[in-house]
Design a binder for these strands. Structure first.
Length: 570
RNA sequence: CGGAGCGUAGCUCAGCUUGGUAGAGCGCCAGCUUUGGGAGCUGGAUGCCGCAGGUUCAAAUCCUGUCGCUCCGACCA
């Protein structure tokens, strides 16, 4: 492609709404343009990269035994009512774009395709001989995100590969899931990501197990915890950390309420009372849908709201507003405790709240704190469970190692769905005994546009993008300097033709600009190989890798050979 | 949806407090010089100051409404 005819001008300054490096570089490099909130134009350079990412994904899915199809993005309401997700996705979460067609029928743009794919497979599946099946598609998805952000990272319209497996039973699902898991690892490896597969919370999609594929980046929206000694790795919202248990006193002292005026927060309280932080207790009052729930964690810990939601099965969970806390506990915010709460309030306590002798908790009276509290004597046993947010330096739940923390971008998520959708939508088969059984499903998503953004986030320097050759928009960037000199122009044109004949994808900068501008644009765009011809290069060519600061003169033949080797061309 | 902020030239932004009819840098166009890391000089074009009302002799500026965008939270590939 001639750059003089290329659409997508580079910009020297980033638009002010670009918050992350990847977003800014993609806008500046002429990869994307914003049309409205969370809606982006994929300019020619980006489209080439997206196609290459898609091709890698396609190849690996095919090798893993999945068959490609393409489902409609425009879907009808009926299927979503069959799976009982219509209400949740429209009225409750509002994540789905839904509107009426000219006849007044309600239609929607697919945020995901469990319904449609289950509908397809139930027509195709009659006998146990029809399974297993696995299909995938690469398609534009629509999600009315509450807060789109960071350019392609969280957009309202984006490209996703989604695959769905249908098996006879759990054992079959395990096999399908494992094949997808391996394929996801190969995809990440082929793109050259620094990444980790982590245990994840399945969230609203449901199911028995899931893993996220996280590209490591400081700007990632997720925190992941991993063990420094074994292979344990999990999303922070899923992880269970191990805490040190402290030796306890043997004597149960009498409980008393201590005046500690204005002491909000366990740290200042522990200091004031002269007790270790772990003896204090945080009691948080939540509104779970329309019920009130109290959650206790040790004073040195925080509540993991995802775990609480999973325990309660509620739709929404948020901290109760101050007025509600006041009427409930009779105290200002900051003095809530488990003793004396109304009987209908469910009290959940993290397991590490237990096994403490003479601990502290709020007294439900402004400025007062109960000390020397003991379960069984001063209050009944609450429901214990794991409700604490794991964090860095916790003990590993699998071994004696310690957890480390890092940020990640979730580019893929694989789920064991089970029979949630097949049961609701009657995707059944007859087994060898003639008994009807629901297919056991898995679903596997990977964000194609998000991979592009994550890749830029992980591969750039102060000058611009540094694409790995596998997904770069072009293999080579041919820079012609002094192009107003006819003989040099002809030389550059000849080289351009030669490269094209060699099936090398080349962007040819034929613009009559100064060297600085052309090199600056090349660095910004990030094409892996830069070839320069000028009056200095004679019948040779300057060969430079984007990731490498040094350049050298080589013959054209040698340059072609190197490019083909780097890009895996024959 | 709750909280915060921003809409002025293609991009980044100044001007608004204290109303007087539009500015800078970069980019763009022309010419000359320059020519391997975003060069210099000269000349030039570009704005429904987001939109709609209101106040006023007069509104980019004050008021009201509205639309759009961004950031912080819950959602997710």
């Amino acid at each position: 492609m001639r750059q003089s005819r290329h659409i997508g001008k580079t910009m020297r300054e980033a638009p002010k709404d670009a918050q992350t490096v990847a977003h800014a570089l993609m806008v500046r490099g002429g990869y994307i343009q914003q049309l409205s909130a969370g809606i982006y134009i994929y300019l020619p350079l980006l489209l080439r990269t997206l196609n290459k990412i898609s091709q890698i994904v396609r190849e690996e899915m095919t090798i893993a035994g999945s068959e490609e199809l393409l489902m409609p993005a425009l879907q009808s309401r009926e299927l979503w009512e069959e799976s009982a997700r219509w209400e949740r996705y429209t009225a409750i979460d509002g994540i789905m774009f839904a509107f009426k067609d000219r006849r007044g029928a309600t239609v929607c743009l697919g945020p995901t395709h469990e319904e449609v794919v289950t509908d397809i497979l139930r027509r195709d599946t009659k006998s146990y001989k029809d399974l297993p099946k696995n299909v995938f598609q690469i398609q534009t998805k629509f999600r009315d995100e509450i807060r789109p952000r960071f350019g392609l990272m969280r957009a309202r319209e984006f490209i996703m590969k989604d695959a769905y497996s249908f098996d006879l039973d759990e054992a079959g699902l395990d096999v399908s899931y494992e094949a997808m898991r391996k394929a996801y690892h190969r995809i990440c490896e082929r793109i050259g990501f620094q990444y980790r597969a982590v245990a994840a919370d399945p969230g609203a999609i449901g199911g028995s197990g899931s893993q996220e594929f996280m590209v490591l980046a400081d700007t990632g929206e997720d925190t992941i915890l991993f063990c420094d000694a074994c292979d344990f790795a999990a999303n922070q919202e899923k992880a269970a950390g191990r805490l040190e248990e402290y030796p306890q006193e043997t004597e149960h002292k009498p409980m008393e309420a201590v005046l500690g005026e204005g002491l909000i927060g366990t740290e200042s309280l522990a200091k004031f009372l002269g007790i270790p932080l772990w003896k204090t207790t945080k009691t948080l009052i939540f509104e779970a849908d329309d019920k009130i729930v109290a959650v206790m964690v040790r004073g040195d810990c925080d509540v993991n709201e995802v775990k609480v939601v999973n325990r309660l099965g509620c739709k929404s969970l948020k901290l109760a507003p101050p007025e509600r806390i006041k009427t409930l506990t009779g105290a200002e915010v900051g003095y809530a405790g488990p003793i004396g709460l109304p009987a209908d309030v469910l009290i959940l306590a993290d397991q590490y709240v237990n096994n403490r002798v003479n601990f502290e908790c709020g007294a439900n009276q402004t400025n007062y704190h109960n000390v020397n509290v003991n379960f069984g004597r001063d209050l009944g046993l609450p429901e214990f469970g794991d409700y604490r947010l794991a964090k860095e330096n916790d003990g590993c739940p699998q071994c004696s190692g310690k957890l480390k923390s890092t940020r990640g971008i979730e580019i893929g998520h694989i789920f064991k769905l089970g029979t949630k959708y097949s049961q609701a939508m009657k995707c059944n088969y007859l087994d060898a005994e003639g008994k009807s059984k629901p297919a056991v499903m898995g679903c596997y998503g990977i964000g194609v546009t998000r991979i592009a953004a994550a890749c830029v986030e992980q591969n750039h320097d102060e000058k611009g993008i540094i694409w790995p050759a596998q997904i770069a928009p072009y293999h080579a960037h041919l820079i012609a300097l002094n192009i107003e000199e006819e003989n040099l122009r002809q030389q550059a044109e000849a080289l351009y033709t030669r490269l094209q004949n060699e099936r090398i994808e080349v962007l040819y900068d034929d613009r009559p600009l100064r060297a600085g501008e052309k090199f600056g644009d090349a660095d910004l765009m990030g094409i892996p190989v830069r070839l320069t011809v000028s009056k200095r290069t004679g019948d040779q060519v300057e060969f430079k890798l984007r990731k490498d600061p040094k350049s050298e003169l080589t013959s054209v033949d040698e340059a072609v050979r190197r490019i083909k080797e780097l890009c895996g061309l024959k």
